[in-house]
């Protein structure tokens, strides 16, 4: 008799929820650590606003959120067509 495929056998490192959770915790902790460097080190900059605490972190975060929101809610409704749009 054929054995049914055991899906758990196929699960590797990044498929296991506990590993993903561990990875996320490491990632968020290191992000926070990178941000905290601003408390101890004064970055040299050209523009005045670069000196603000966490300027780059906030800009990166906001930029990506804006990027996704605009793409999803503005651009996609405008430009998305069915896959065969050009075929007929």
């Amino acid at each position: 008799m054929k054995q049914p495929i055991d899906i758990d056998e196929e699960l590797r490192m990044f498929d296991k929820p506990e590993n993903v959770k561990r990875l996320l915790i490491i990632f968020f902790t290191s992000s926070a650590a990178v941000l905290m460097i601003d408390l101890f080190y004064h970055r040299h900059s050209i523009f005045a606003w670069e000196d603000y605490f966490g300027f780059y972190a906030v800009y990166g975060f906001v930029a990506c959120v804006v990027l996704v929101i605009v793409s999803k809610y503005i651009l996609r409704p405008l430009v998305m067509r069915k896959e065969e749009y050009y075929d007929d």
Partner: peptide, 22 residues
């Protein structure tokens, strides 16, 4: 320069945070 490395790391890490949270 330390400033540049830190600034770029912050930018990228928090872009990734945004991706993950979204």
């Amino acid at each position: 320069t330390p400033s540049h490395v830190i600034a770029q790391s912050q930018l990228l890490f928090f872009s990734a945070v945004a991706f993950t949270l979204l």
